[in-house]
Structure formats: structure tokens, C-alpha cells
């Protein structure tokens, strides 16, 4: 497979107006990806599928990522006038990067036996600009997986033939894989809690009303053996 940079150049030549960014992955796997702007994503996807040297005919995986608002601190060198003398001073600036939802597609070519090519798309924010174009018209295998991303992350795919929840029931209102999802508090009975479960059980105990009836003695509760890890 040719390099990502050359693929990017060829997409830019083939799809006029497209904005494509190369997202670098610094980990040892080095799976770099292409960030596509949503308005041209469908044309880019068609190009990747139909180009005779690429022929990405198979979309193996669609998944979502939830990025919260993050504060980025960066150090900038600034020229300032201090006591009449111009000096270069280092200044820390804090930037608030607004959060967004990201959808990641893994593409392979069955015909040419190469891949994966990783495509990304980002929404405007996490609340009202959450619409992205569906790539189901290009790769049929995206259908259920885009429904899953819709179900768990709340991304609305425009042009999807049948956008319903797929894992949770229809009346469910939350998106459980979002990082700010609040799960129902059902940690009433935790005989051997440890880690995060112990934390949640303690929180439940603090918020719940004191229950009627005889309580197990604290001694007996303290004697419950801790779990092995």
C-alpha cells in the first residue's frame, strides 16, 4: 500500500475542496490515520473504494471515541516590553479545546490485499452538532456498526437507511459509552467489593436512606475476605 501522505495528496487532487489531515499515532503500532472533513467524507470514501490502486472494498470496523473538553497548556515565547527594554519571555497559555465525538473506520482491500486504512471524522461538539454523513451507501458493512455508534455514543448519521438503537431498547435515552454517562445506582449488595465497585458501594451507602430491619454487624462485614486482586 502506498504511503498515507501520497494517498492524501491523491485524495486532495481527486476531491476538490476536501480538507484532509494526517493524524499521527506516536505509539509503537504507528497506525496513522486520515482525518476527513464531514462535508466531503462521502466523496472521499467513494474515491478510496473505486480508485484502481487502492480499492478499499471492505470496511471491517466502525467505532466511536468520546473526547471531553480538555484544557491544553502550552508554553509560548512572547516579546514583551519590560521597563523599556524588549525581552523574550516564556509564557504559559491555557487553551480550552472543546470536546467532540469521533468516528473511526478501518478499511481493507480484499482485492489488493492491503490495509488497514484508518479514516476519522469528528463532530462539531458533543451536544447539538453531532451529525455526520453515513458511509453505509459506500460500504454496506457499516450499517449495524454505525447503528451501534449511534446507540452508544449518540452520533447521528445522515443518510443511514435505518438508524435505530441496536443494543439498548428503543425507549432508552442515554448513550452509555460517553464519558459523562451516569449509570443507575444499583450497588445495594456488595459482599466482597474491591476497586471501583467498593467505591460505588460506599457511595451508594452514603446516599441511600438507612434501611429498616436488622443490619449485619460491622464485624461480620469486615471479616469478609478481600478478593484476590
Amino acid at each position: 500500500m502506498e504511503s498515507l501522505e501520497s494517498i492524501r495528496q491523491r485524495i486532495l487532487a481527486a476531491v476538490p475542496g476536501a480538507r484532509i489531515e494526517l493524524v499521527h499515532n506516536p505509539s509503537p503500532s504507528g497506525q496513522h490515520s486520515l482525518l476527513v472533513d464531514p462535508s466531503h467524507a462521502l466523496a472521499v470514501a467513494r474515491f478510496l473504494r473505486d480508485d484502481p490502486h487502492l480499492r478499499f472494498d471492505y470496511c471491517s470496523n466502525v467505532t466511536g471515541v468520546d473526547w471531553l473538553d480538555t484544557e491544553i497548556t502550552e508554553k509560548v515565547r512572547v516579546r514583551l516590553l519590560i521597563e523599556g527594554v524588549e525581552r523574550e519571555v516564556e509564557e504559559t497559555r491555557k487553551l480550552l479545546r472543546p470536546g467532540y465525538l469521533e468516528v473511526v473506520y478501518h478499511l481493507y482491500s480484499m482485492a489488493l490485499r492491503h490495509g488497514p486504512l484508518i479514516l476519522r471524522m469528528r463532530t462539531g461538539n458533543r451536544s447539538d452538532q453531532i451529525r455526520l454523513p453515513s458511509l453505509t451507501p459506500v460500504w454496506r458493512s457499516c450499517e449495524f456498526q454505525e447503528r451501534e455508534v449511534f446507540d452508544l455514543f449518540g452520533v447521528i448519521f445522515e443518510g443511514h437507511p435505518d438508524l435505530r438503537r441496536i443494543l439498548m431498547w428503543d425507549g432508552f435515552q442515554d448513550h452509555p459509552m460517553r464519558k459523562d454517562y451516569v449509570e443507575p445506582d444499583d450497588y445495594e449488595y456488595e459482599p466482597t467489593p474491591h476497586g471501583a465497585v467498593a467505591e460505588k458501594a460506599r457511595r451508594h451507602q452514603a446516599t441511600a436512606a438507612p434501611p429498616p430491619g436488622p443490619a449485619a454487624s460491622p464485624k461480620a462485614a469486615a471479616q469478609t475476605p478481600p478478593a484476590s486482586h
Partner: peptide, 17 residues
Amino acid sequence: PPKNPEVWKPPILRRPA
């Protein structure tokens, strides 16, 4: 409901915070 209290009556565990 998230549980049926008629059926499910777990012992109440109190442990030091």
C-alpha cells in the same frame, strides 16, 4: 422497577468507611 423488593432481600452490609 430495577428490582423486586418482594423477592430480593439481601442482607444489609455495613462497613467502616
